[in-house]
Amino acid sequence: MGNVVELNREEATELLTTMWTIRRFEEAVDDLFARGLLHGTMHLSIGQEASATGAIAALEQGDYITSTHRGHGHCIAKGADVTLMLAELLGKESGYCRGRGGSMHIADLDAGNLGANGIVAGSIPIAAGAALALKQRGSDRVVVCFFGDGAANEGAFHEALNMAAIWKLPVIFICENNHYGMSMAWTKAVAIDRLSRRADAYGFPGMTIDGNDVIAVKEATERAVKRARSGEGPTLIECLTYRHKGHSKSDQNLYRTREEIKEWRDKDPTQRFARVAIDAGLMDAATAEDIAEEAEQRIARAIEEARSGPDPTLVGIEDETYA
């Protein structure tokens, strides 16, 4: 576990609140989908809350993130309004993208979230581009770029990491290694033991950490942010984690065992952090339970509000293609 002593009560409460908000949000949308109230598909990050929460906790106002198809957690951690997110998933005009984007394409530009992306590795060059713009303008802001183990085998990963390296761009590459690219085990997709070794090939630091330890993720990202802000360039942080749910809504879990899933459920990052925070005296057990309970209620209220939002129409839709 990362160093819990470095945290104060307020920070601990904030981290746990974010993690439970993500968890309850995704459980709620999973339920809406099961009840036929949500259309399309979605990719849940249940079990991966620590990497989104810990990495974004290391950022400040004005910093950016880019996200992935499994992006609800990143979006919430970056400060999104869950009502607007739910409205987007429900296809409402009142959603973040007016019902045009859906689960896989939520962007919250005002908060610095440059968007979730349906193309694996699609947002890695975009993150490098935003970082280049910041550097060119003399800003000390940074970009955190989330992607999965699958994305690390795309050409876009290679080109973007190399260009970020040669230009020392202020970008932190967070590889959320959740062990599978859809059904492909990451260990079968590469012939190396750690994806973070690839950083060596580009000439910047890489590390593999326990991605289910929110404090460890936060600390590693803080070091990488410091490096980026001071003009030293990128860092690759591989967060080892696991998605409890299937890849998307069509997944029958044929490629992994119940035992494996159970083993990782026992390493649940959210409950684990609650225990650590309680043991360290940063909160009592009742407070930790209240945080989970309040998150659930907040999401329930947001669903009601989101469901009452207006539906979009086709009127003028072709005029929206261009700015």
């Binding site: 060059p125 713009a133 050409g155 080109e159």
Partner: peptide
Amino acid sequence: ADRVRDTPISEIGIVGIAVGAALVGMRP
């Protein structure tokens, strides 16, 4: 060299970096 930026032979990177820079207000 910052405004006339030679790149490696990386077309995905060239176009993708232009997209990202444009998203945050540049005109690449």
